[in-house]
Design a protein around this nucleic acid. Structure first.
Lengths: 218, 218
DNA sequence: CACCTAATTATACACTTGCATAATTACCTT
DNA sequence: AAGGTAATTATGCAAGTGTATAATTAGGTG
């Protein structure tokens, strides 16, 4: 029973990269940066650690790629929500807000992942750029939805309103992820939609979509 | 020139504990959990690593103590803000909101520290308890200020309004810490006070305090 | 089928981490 | 001033980290 070398199959480059990235994101979500060691990542991806350095310059490179992939996926999901919403501006906005304040977006693992990456944002300029771009994109989406509402607002007001609404959403998302059992039913979404409506001077509550509609990956 | 043993003085237990805790908090704020190694902490506290295990069971114990200390300090600061505010309910609320959305509370290092500790909150039940207590205390303070406003609101509404306002504050705090240069002057506080006022149906803007008032430690 | 290339694994290394233990020495007591 | 005690330092260690490099072998090509 001496050393038996492990059998393997040659997968496509893209699949291996994605497997490694996905493993990284999962591990970070579960146990923070601490848990995402090269060995753990490789094991989760069904591979040996050496392969990481075959597809990436090093661990830092992999982490960067993972963050970029995550951000791309998130903005794509947001776009999907807007696309699948109806035509009425108020309903579209309500759907956008509600989607950000319900599972699977509200999810303890997502908060952990977000918290873990925030550290990198400060140190790594490349990451910081991705972060800012994603954040501003989200805010712009929101600002667009607000601009489509009936009534006219000047550009400066529009920006400030978008910042405020974005704040409510982010803050409530945070609280929902950190203390999930504190907000039964769909309370978080209802509070968020009501608050955004109040800030904008529009009653959005009649337009809040049914909770049991869509679902995405955690 | 052989090994010269380092000179030292015997400080009080309380001072040493505080020095170690303070060093831990600073390092976590600067470089995340990663940077807060026993050696770095000891060096920052002007001490050798072994002392950590003399005053604490281990690194985890020190980290827990640091988190508890931080949370205590934060709630104390919040209480100070309320104490130093005037008598008018609207002005008190405006002061409370504004204080949370200005330096030194809005500070990149604080976000990093918060993010670093959030991970622990999920894994360590003791830490989680402290976290929830602090969070609920903050929200209760807020709810009390809201309840003091003119007009009557039932208990359920009060709770929901406090959650929403807390969300705005948290979310804007987050954005302000992450992208400091995006909000010149006192814009963040102004947006926050306006949004909270809108949610509550009260115009708080006339009561927003002058930015150049107080200052605290980062 | 043999061969060649590159995807994959295996091994080794230098470094860091937290912790345990032993050796010192500053300061209090008498 | 002497002595004792506990606060503090010094040293060592096992485990885990990322990375470099060499050894294999899967799978396409002639």
């Amino acid at each position: 029973m001496t050393g038996e070398r492990r059998k393997f199959t040659r997968e496509g480059e893209e699949r291996r990269r994605e497997a490694l990235i996905s493993a990284t994101l999962d591990l970070v979500a579960e146990g923070g940066v601490m848990a995402a060691t090269v060995r753990a990542i490789a094991a989760r991806a069904g591979v040996t650690p050496g392969l990481i350095r075959h597809y990436f310059t090093g661990k830092e490179d992999l982490t960067r790629a993972a963050y970029r992939g995550l951000m791309d996926r998130m903005t794509a999901e947001n776009l999907d929500v807007i696309r699948n919403a109806g035509a009425d501006p108020a309903a579209r906005l309500a759907a956008f807000v509600a989607a950000s304040l319900r599972p699977p977006v509200v999810h303890a693992g997502r908060l952990g992942r977000w918290a873990a990456f925030i550290q990198m944002v400060r140190r790594d300029p490349a990451i910081r750029e991705v972060h800012e771009a994603t954040y501003l994109n989200y805010r712009d989406q929101l600002q667009g939805l607000i601009a489509d509402l009936p009534g006219s607002r000047d550009e400066g007001d529009l920006r400030r309103l978008a910042i405020a609404c974005n704040g409510v959403i982010d803050g409530l998302w945070l609280e929902g992820c950190a203390l999930p059992e504190s907000f039964p039913d769909d309370e978080l979404a209802r509070i968020g939609v009501a608050a955004v409506g109040a800030i904008l001077g529009v009653d959005l509550m009649p337009h809040i979509p049914d909770p049991a509609a869509e679902s995405e990956t955690p």
